[in-house]
Write a protein that binds this DNA or RNA. Structure first.
Lengths: 142, 142
DNA sequence: GCTTGACCTCAAGTGAACTTGAAGTGGCAA
DNA sequence: TTGCCACTTCAAGTTCACTTGAGGTCAAGC
């Protein structure tokens, strides 16, 4: 069988070598051996990395991914966990939709100052009260 | 007129005093004077804080809020900026919706291993390819 | 007048997820 | 055999948004 060296995994997965080493240290992935100093990975690691990317995209922290997605060895994913995460995403989506609508309105609104626009003020109130309270964030590009 | 001391602002806005000092240092808010050592704030600061919360909820960093939301003194919000942010939110929402659907499916899917489920693998592919690539994150509760 | 304690400043710490740098190693081409 | 250089390790640095801690001040109540 053909093993992949870290550069190849990095290239195929788009995950930098430094991150791969970091993931290995964290127990998220495992190398199958070495060629001299160099780590060798099984091609399966690519699935694993995809799974990690998926978890991260769904809002799991790396620690959560480590705990939830890979209890031991082969990934064995808890269906309830997935359903819960889906529900959580639903709430996030609802919040963001409200935000988007508010922003859209504010952008189109003709009030001289946004602070005078009732819709904007409602948004403001929601944001202040924490009814929105959470936020959408982009991953630092990678 | 009545000025608010930092504890009052903290209490009314829900933003801890330490964060208020931090915001002042960053130029996001300004105190109008002192009573002895103690900062005094105009009640207007509450609007400002709501605006900051709104910006953060919409995905702006504090630096962005400082630049975009308050070019100088009174907030003067760029409508184009708002529209852009709304569009960005739209994309985020679309991505998250896809994620949610995928998770939902995976949770219900009967394939023995998620890795054998075609829908799950498609999700995996999307996550790996960066088609999803960004993530939703919660603000640390506050 | 004196104590109290909420506020002050400034520096350092936190946590997540990596990246960067310095110094070292070893497989492979010439 | 030599030398290259992509890889290695380990420690420290980075960014964001704050929080925490130590040591200090002062308006107000008794």
């Amino acid at each position: 069988m053909k093993y992949l060296d870290i550069a190849e995994v990095a290239q195929r997965s788009g995950v930098p070598a430094s991150a791969l080493r970091f993931y290995e240290e964290k127990g998220l992935i495992a190398s199958v051996g070495r060629n001299g100093l160099r780590r060798l990975f099984d091609a399966e690691v690519l699935d694993r990395l995809a799974l990690i990317a998926l978890g991260r995209a769904a809002g799991f922290s790396l620690d959560e991914v480590a705990r939830v997605f890979t209890p031991r060895g082969r990934p064995h994913i808890d269906r309830q966990m997935l359903a819960d995460k889906a529900t959580e995403l639903d709430n996030t989506i609802r919040r963001l939709s409200a935000m988007r609508d508010g922003l859209r309105h504010a952008a189109a609104c003709s009030a001289s100052s946004h602070l005078e626009c009732p819709t904007f003020r409602r948004l403001l109130g929601a944001a202040a009260s924490g009814a929105i309270g959470k936020r959408a964030k982009k991953t630092p590009a990678r």
